[in-house]
Design a protein around this nucleic acid. Structure first.
Lengths: 183, 183
DNA sequence: AGTTGTTGTTATCCACTGATAACTAAGACC
DNA sequence: GGTCTTAGTTATCAGTGGATAACAACAACT
């Protein structure tokens, strides 16, 4: 191993990246800090030392996912600041499907008070960002988010994104009419 | 304790009910079989004996949730076999919010192959049921499910349903225009 | 070179959890 | 009333997972 050492912030970022991958598969409770550590190639106790606790690691991970979605939408709005414009960015989001799935796990885990607060704040930010970028009405934004949630769930179910499951009739019917998701 | 004994099928049903409550809070990995047992007032090993494994218990729970949604939609369709008709039933579904949240946990956990198969099958059934009951087009059904996913996620985030969190501006804006969810 | 701070590891712990086994007790049936 | 089946328990285990502590090694600076 000629692996050179990283600075704390580099390692931090790398671990968040690994955590996105790991948590997307197993969710918060279903993922071990050791799995995250292995992906990043460090020891499990070091992960805890850098983040303080598993919960902090998960919070950092969902925050990162939210920020990444924001960044992608901001970039999309520079070309076309409309809802279909942002919707087109779902192609890129599905390319990083783990981002969406991690967020979904966060939403599902909102029963936990502290995770819930974080996740609701994240969602609120996204809502206002879309309103601000597009100037669309509340109704239109609501439909946009509804479609987004459907895409996210279909991503989590391996119906959309990479390495999808064999197609079933209902999937083709649904996907045939799905906006924002053409490849 | 004058607690009389139940038949196996009664206990089975009661445990599934308890499991809906428990799994809705913590998800699959984040819930212990002992928590389910305590809610039902039995010992933890008995839960395992009746269902074989924790995974089987979770599968039974998601199946039950899916069946319940089907039943509610069928009942709604008898009065008004249209999409808005079924949408009105979301009021009842939100009254049993744990049902929706358990399903969401199932969707999120679809990374697991065996849970994934079950959950996709459940979703496919729901899709065809709605098409059959309403005769709506694929596009309309897609929008219906998109709105349903949004409602489900908002339920999981404690923005809709019972014991909701204090309202935030973005929530009121979103909810103000949300169909199928007026109380 | 020596000293100091930062990056990382190994060893270890303790609580927890799903599962098994062996046992107990309530009904049903004759 | 005895016996057989079904409902349920207690005791226990083996594995795991997050967290702590103590230690090691690389780098930087004078």
């Amino acid at each position: 191993m000629v692996r050179t050492r990283l600075t704390a912030s580099e390692r931090h970022a790398q671990l968040v990246q690994a955590a996105v991958t790991a948590f997307a598969q197993g969710g918060y409770a279903g993922t071990t800090t050791d799995q995250v550590a292995r992906i990043a190639g460090v020891s499990q106790p070091y992960v805890i030392r850098l983040f303080g606790s598993k919960q902090e690691l998960f919070l950092a991970t969902t925050r990162h996912a939210g920020d990444r979605v924001q960044a992608i939408w901001r970039a999309a709005a520079e070309k076309d600041p409309t809802l279909p414009g942002l919707g087109a960015a779902y192609k890129e989001l599905l390319a990083e499907r783990d981002l969406l799935v991690v967020l979904l796990h966060g939403f599902a885990a909102a029963g936990d008070p502290v995770l819930g607060d974080a996740v609701r704040a994240c969602y609120g930010e996204l809502f206002f960002l879309v309103r601000e970028l597009t100037g669309a009405s509340a109704e239109e934004v609501r439909d946009f988010f509804a479609a987004g949630m459907l895409i996210t769930v279909l991503g989590a179910m391996r119906v959309l994104g990479a390495d999808t499951v064999p197609m079933q009739p209902w999937m083709t019917e649904l996907l045939g009419t799905l906006p924002y998701s053409e490849e």
